[in-house]
Structures are given as C-alpha cells and as structure tokens.
C-alpha cells in the first residue's frame, strides 16, 4: 500500500493539521509516513498545502508532483492542484466553499460539504476534520479510532479543550460517507 496525498486550502483552514493527523495515525498503525509542508509567507493568508505519504514500504522522496489523492478546501487550491492529480486518483473537495459542480477527467471526485457540517456543529474551523473523516471513511487508509486517538497527540495541550468538538466533526464526516456509500 502506498498513498500520496496533497492537502490544500487557505491558511487557517487547518490543512497542515489534517496532514499531521493522517501522518500520525499512519505511524501509530506501523506504517511509514512523511509530512511535508509548504512553508514561508504563503502560510499567512494565501494557499497552504502539505504533502503526506503513507506506505508499507520505506518512503524515498517526501515530495510529490502528481498525488493520487487531493483533499482540497478552497477554489484557488483546487485550480492549482486538481490538474496534478494522477489518472485513476481521487479528489475530495469542500463543496461548501466550492459551490459549482466539479467533474474530474479520469479521476474520482467526491463532494464533501465540510464547512456546512462544521457550522452545524457551531465551529467553522473544524471543517478540516469533517473532510478528514469523510476521506478515511471512504478509503480506509487508517482506522477512525486511530485518528480519534491522534487528536490528543497532535493538538497542542492548550487546545485539548477542542478535542470533543473535533471528534464530533470526524464522526460527522465519517458517517456522512459511510451512510452515502456503505449503507
């Protein structure tokens, strides 16, 4: 198994955090992982992205020009990264912020109303966990329980009061997809 993801959005949408959660969970399940951020001025306000690789084998380059999976939280990031997704890959986009219908050529596209659900839960900043929940529900890269347990390790301690609401967001994203496809 080898997954190469780009997770993108604007600064503040928590895309770096999504990547860390995924990498941490992969590590906990005994997989090889790398997390590579974009860094520098673009983190403040512009588009931000990170590359995550998860594999059963040793990972060579942590960079990725053509990911097999794109998790994308806003339109500028979609425009930048969608063309790079490899044929046969998949894209999960935040349909609350990218309202027009998206179709992919040779890629599997999934719409996740991440912000809508986050707002229902009362905090738009947890849209990222809705998206992550949806992704792992659909592709089963790592177990939901592992992701849940990673929150305490990846969130800085002063934010541990937010664990519950993040768990809720993960669950909503997860059940969104399992109810759509698996049930």
């Amino acid at each position: 198994m080898k997954k190469e993801l780009i997770i993108a959005g604007f600064g503040g949408q928590g895309v770096m955090f999504m990547g860390k959660m995924l990498a941490h969970s992969g590590m906990k399940e005994g997989l090889e992982v790398t997390w590579m951020p974009s860094y520098g001025p673009e983190m403040r306000g512009g588009t931000a992205h990170c590359t995550v690789k998860i594999s059963t084998e040793r990972i060579a380059s942590p960079f990725c020009s053509h990911p097999d999976t794109l998790l994308v939280m806003n339109r500028p990031s979609l425009e930048k990264f969608q063309p790079r997704v490899r044929a046969g890959g998949s894209m999960y986009y935040n349909s609350s912020m990218i309202e027009q219908e998206i179709s992919g050529q040779e890629i599997d596209v999934a719409a996740v109303p991440a912000n809508k659900i986050a707002e229902e839960l009362g905090n738009p900043r947890i849209a990222n966990m809705v998206m992550l929940g949806a992704y792992i529900a659909r592709e089963e890269i790592v177990d939901l329980m592992t992701i849940n347990n990673s929150l305490a390790a990846v969130l800085p301690e002063e934010k541990h009061n937010l664990i519950d609401i993040n768990l809720e967001a993960l669950k909503r994203g997860y059940s969104l997809y399992t109810s759509l496809e698996k049930s």
Binding site: A23, M27, E32, V33, T34, W35, M36, P37, Y39, P62
Partner: peptide
Amino acid sequence: GMIGQMMEP
C-alpha cells in the same frame, strides 16, 4: 528546508 520542515516518525 526539507529536512528541517518535514515530519517523520
């Protein structure tokens, strides 16, 4: 920058 910024186990 890669070694410094990257996260690995």
